[in-house]
Simulated scan of single mutants.
Amino acid sequence: MPELKDYFSIVPENVAYSSALNRSIVEELKRRYPFLVTGTIGNSVMGREIPYISIGTGKKQLFYSAAYHANEWITTPVLLKFVEDYARAYANDLSLGEAQAERLFEEYQLFVVPMVNPDGVDLVNGMLEVEGYLKQARQIAADYPQIPFPQGWKANINGVDLNLQFPAGWEKAREIKFAQGYTTPAPRDYVGSAPLTEPESIAVYEFTRVHDFLLILAYHTQGETIYWKYADYNPEKSYEIAQYFGRVSGYTVEETPAESGNAGYKDWFIQEYNRPGYTIEVGKGVNPLPLSQFPQIYRDNFGILLGGMLNI
């Protein structure tokens, strides 16, 4: 994609993210590219907005989301940068990878939620300043001293894992996680008292229900792995698309491990709609991954993000 002389990137790649930064980037993208549609899918426990961006006017709807887990926030700029690259290409009549941005814009409507868990991201990155919630998080973490605080925090601010909240094998997930010792609110792996108790997971659920998504990507870290299956469901083209994603990214394509193969957003989407849904685990190492990995992560995932549209 050719560089434009007057172009400067809105999406920073070298700073820790926060809910406020995510929101301001969404607003700035909208200002520069007025054809983007922005809004919120709901609010977090602490009342923070959960912004979305939509690009395109086509009939085929897709949904990409990230940062369900607080210490996996590096996935947020991955989605924001893709939106920026796509919007810039469309605005300047350029190609986006191997596709003409104008054709994508006319054929697809892509919805993106870059940060599902704003409270948790703020906690992990030291930007949570509301003393009551900070005290609550410390008390939750104290019950699980083996998990480093706050770096090991994946949950929302209530200590519920947002990717264990969906009504697809939730009871099985509860059985597994309780057996692992996560029986109370925790920095990670606590399923909650029931499915869909948390406002963030409810917001994703309801946003999905009012749209007609043909394919979803849910972004996580780490492992450079693509998970494509839930239970015995095998949506049409699902495995073939997963193999395509593997080829363009270099990531391995696997079935979800049994200990984490239930109650996720991808699991529910596949069960509910019998359409392709994927969990993408980017990067390698210990969460939160260092920003030094971001350029490689984005290069690896550009083909997946573009390929979601090209293959549906």
Rank of each mutant, 00 (worst) to 15 (best):
1 M>I: 12
4 L>D: 05
7 Y>V: 05
7 Y>P: 05
18 S>F: 10
19 S>N: 12
20 A>V: 07
21 L>M: 07
21 L>F: 01
21 L>C: 07
26 V>W: 05
29 L>R: 03
39 G>L: 12
47 G>Q: 05
61 Q>N: 07
71 N>A: 07
73 W>G: 03
81 K>L: 08
84 E>R: 06
86 Y>H: 07
90 Y>D: 09
98 E>K: 12
102 E>S: 11
106 E>V: 11
116 V>F: 01
119 D>A: 02
125 N>L: 10
126 G>L: 01
128 L>V: 00
143 D>W: 12
144 Y>E: 03
153 W>H: 02
156 N>Q: 12
157 I>H: 04
171 E>G: 09
171 E>D: 14
184 T>D: 13
186 A>P: 10
188 R>S: 10
194 A>I: 10
202 I>V: 13
203 A>C: 11
207 F>R: 09
207 F>H: 06
210 V>D: 06
210 V>E: 11
211 H>E: 09
213 F>I: 04
214 L>S: 14
215 L>T: 10
218 A>T: 12
219 Y>F: 13
222 Q>P: 04
222 Q>R: 03
223 G>E: 06
227 Y>S: 03
231 A>V: 04
231 A>H: 00
241 I>E: 01
243 Q>V: 14
248 V>I: 03
256 T>E: 13
258 A>F: 15
263 A>D: 00
267 D>V: 04
268 W>F: 10
271 Q>N: 08
273 Y>W: 09
274 N>S: 03
276 P>D: 11
277 G>K: 03
278 Y>K: 10
279 T>I: 01
286 V>P: 05
288 P>M: 02
292 S>Y: 14
293 Q>H: 12
295 P>K: 12
298 Y>V: 09
310 L>R: 11
312 I>Y: 14
